[in-house]
């Protein structure tokens, strides 16, 4: 109670998200053919550790893996430390198999971790690229995501917590846009 989003906000997010998906479809060809900077080396599909480092950065991923100590980023633009954000030139290159595999990797990581901004952005971007109708594996992964968000939300100390909007956004998109209605906030 007090942590759930308003219905108006949920409706607005679903409408905006639908527009975002249409724009991705419209611009995908353009962005997928743009040359990537030479420092952007996308991991192979099977390279789970590589993808975690690519999306979350060494600062988040390797620090979590190494007993919770935090590595200081050397620069705000050092993407190997901070992770690559979901630039359109990157996500437009991902086919559905990769989108789903990456969702599975990041949702699996999230089961044992906090919601950091890098993760929120990537989860949003991957949901925006996830084609409907969903295949059963996709259903299962996004439901796991919404449940984890709900679980984490119950642990927040107040509605001022900076993680609350992101958790509610992800729950809203899974439940309302992807029609997992039993998970929706009323």
């Amino acid at each position: 109670e007090g942590l759930s989003p308003s219905l108006g906000w949920q409706r607005q997010q679903v409408a905006n998200f639908s527009d975002v998906r249409q724009s991705i479809a419209k611009h995908r060809r353009h962005w997928s053919t743009q040359t990537l900077d030479e420092n952007v080396v996308m991991p192979k599909l099977s390279d789970e550790e590589g993808w975690k480092t690519f999306c979350l950065g060494e600062t988040v991923y390797k620090a979590t893996a190494a007993s919770g100590t935090h590595l200081e980023p050397s620069s705000a633009l050092d993407y190997s430390k901070m992770g690559f954000p979901p630039f359109l030139s990157i996500v437009s290159r991902l086919n559905q198999t990769t989108v789903l595999a990456l969702l599975e990797i990041l949702v699996g990581w999230f089961e044992e971790a906090e919601l950091v901004p890098q993760l929120g952005r990537w989860l949003y971007a991957l949901l925006a690229c996830l084609e409907k109708p969903l295949i059963p594996e996709a259903h299962s992964i996004i439901r796991q995501l919404a449940r984890r968000c709900g679980q984490l939300r119950t642990t927040l100390p107040s509605q001022e917590d900076t993680r609350l909007p992101a958790l509610n956004l992800l729950i809203c998109l899974v439940a309302r846009y992807f029609e997992q209605n039993d998970l929706a906030d009323q």
Binding site: P5, S6, Q12, Q13, S23, H27, V91, R121, P165, L169
Partner: peptide, 30 residues
């Protein structure tokens, strides 16, 4: 035309990141 140029301004390489950040920034509780 103007609409096309507006659209390409919005849909730069960081468009998804901006869309996410905007959604989070406008959050309202019930």
């Amino acid at each position: 035309g103007a609409a096309q140029s507006d659209d390409s301004d919005i849909w730069d390489d960081t468009a998804l990141i901006k869309a996410y950040d905007k959604a989070v920034a406008t959050f309202k509780t019930a």
